[in-house]
Simulated assay, not measured.
Amino acid sequence: MSDTATPQAASRTPTHGRWSVPVLGLGIFAVGTDEFVLAGVLPEISDAFGISVAAAGQIVTAFALVCAVLAPVLGTLTAAWPRRRVLLLALAVYAAGNVATALSASFGWLLAAQMVAAAGAGLFVPAASVTAAALVPAERRGRAIAAVTTGFTAATALGAPIGTALGGAFGWRATVWFLVALAGAGLAGVAALVPARVAVAASGGLRARLAPLRDRRALAIMGTTLLAFTAVYIPYTYIAPVFEPATGGNGTRLALLLFLFGVVGTVANHLAGTLADRVGGRAVASGSIALLIAALLLLPLTTGSYGLALAMVVAYGLPSWAITTPQQHRLIALDPASAPVYVSLNAAVLYLAISLSGVLGAAGLGWTGANRLALVAAAIAVAALGLSELAHRLGRK
């Protein structure tokens, strides 16, 4: 049966109404933790398979690239399916990929298994955002998307530290079994709490579903996402060398910086969703990028003191995580009927930004050194702000 229930009716259902959106956030927490936690156990993986840490790091790159490529493809192919079926399939594929990862006997098998897990993650993230937006009235759409995407910040603040600790104590396979357990919890939650029928606009054929790609406004907004999150993730990916003068190479001090970044991001994401509902996505997105530029310009001045580093992580984390929800809000507002395509493409762009941040950050380390790497990110953020305002002008025309 096709999805025919109205968003308002679904949100009023007693069994589902209160918990449907949070359980989607749990699912994103599960798939988002994979992206962040494996970076913390790369030394263990390199030792286990007798490869360099740089080679082991290709897991993170491959995961992000597969998500970037498959998110729009899978999102388009499943756009007419019932949302709960898509969500359950995505989590099942993600869980299967991680089971295969935990049982891997070679690095090649591990890499292939993580690519399977990435396919599930790439399908789940946009489907969860679209479902959350469909479950609530239009005036609460930004907060619903924020509640779901908070799963990413929670993955940074909680999932990655817990998984890294498990890997240090029991080996990297324990970290992957932790991911499997999270996927199982997400599967159970979605099956029990997401309505069987959620109203999302039906699309025509493949050509009709990809028609939004011809919209210059959408391309400008997604370009903003690409540049903004490349700027965000360059310092995050290389946070250890950037703040090494402040941490002295102490892992506990670095872990606290990462934890604080995630906690601040969780708060910022919720605030951004509420503000997007009140003042619009463009104002929040452009304002957040402007604050990000200021933080990145000041960051090199704070790397010599741990106290200043803690303050800077707050100043850097707030605008970084306040960009996600407004960007999705802007895309859905362009044409709610095309929300599945828009959001899946935006998710793909976000994963592409993660991949680019590793490449551009590595180049920046050789060019400017760790202390000035944030200035490279600031230049990219300036371009993101310009593109954000261009998208707004195109929308007004």
Rank of each mutant, 00 (worst) to 15 (best):
F124I: 07
A240G: 05
E44Y: 08
W19K: 01
Y351E: 00
V125M: 13
A384C: 09
G304W: 07
A337G: 14
T156D: 04
A322M: 13
V314K: 03
A90W: 07
I51T: 11
I354N: 14
A196L: 03
W367R: 08
E389G: 05
G189P: 01
G50M: 08
V376G: 05
L227S: 03
L38C: 06
A134G: 14
S338Q: 14
S2N: 10
A39K: 06
P161E: 10
T225D: 01
M115W: 01
A246H: 07
R143N: 01
V23A: 06
A30S: 15
A378C: 11
A169M: 11
I162W: 01
V349C: 04
A309W: 11
L387I: 10
A337Q: 13
A5F: 05
G171F: 02
A105P: 03
A56W: 09
R141E: 12
L360T: 07
A370L: 09
R214N: 00
M312S: 11
D215P: 00
F229L: 12
V242H: 02
A220N: 09
E244Q: 14
S106V: 04
T6N: 04
I145F: 04
A181S: 09
A201M: 03
L375N: 10
P22W: 02
T230I: 07
R143I: 03
G57H: 02
L77E: 08
A353G: 03
R253K: 09
V359A: 14
N371H: 15
A183D: 08
P14G: 07
G57Y: 05
W172M: 04
G287F: 07
L111F: 11
M312K: 05
A240M: 02
A188W: 13
A255Q: 12
G248D: 08
N98E: 13
A10K: 10
G205A: 06
T61H: 04
A133Q: 10
H392A: 15
A127F: 03
A201D: 11
G171I: 00
T247S: 12
P195F: 10
E389C: 07
N269I: 12
T4C: 00
A165H: 03
G184M: 09
A191C: 02
R253I: 00
T302D: 05
L87H: 09
P326E: 03
A231M: 04
L26R: 10
V180S: 04
G361N: 06
G40N: 11
G167R: 11
V99M: 10
L111H: 05
M1P: 01
V69N: 00
G366E: 13
L65F: 06
I380R: 11
G248R: 13
I332Y: 04
A80S: 14
E244F: 05
A100I: 08
A199S: 12
G364H: 04
G265K: 08
R372D: 15
A113M: 02
V341L: 13
L166P: 07
R143L: 13
V60Y: 06
S129F: 10
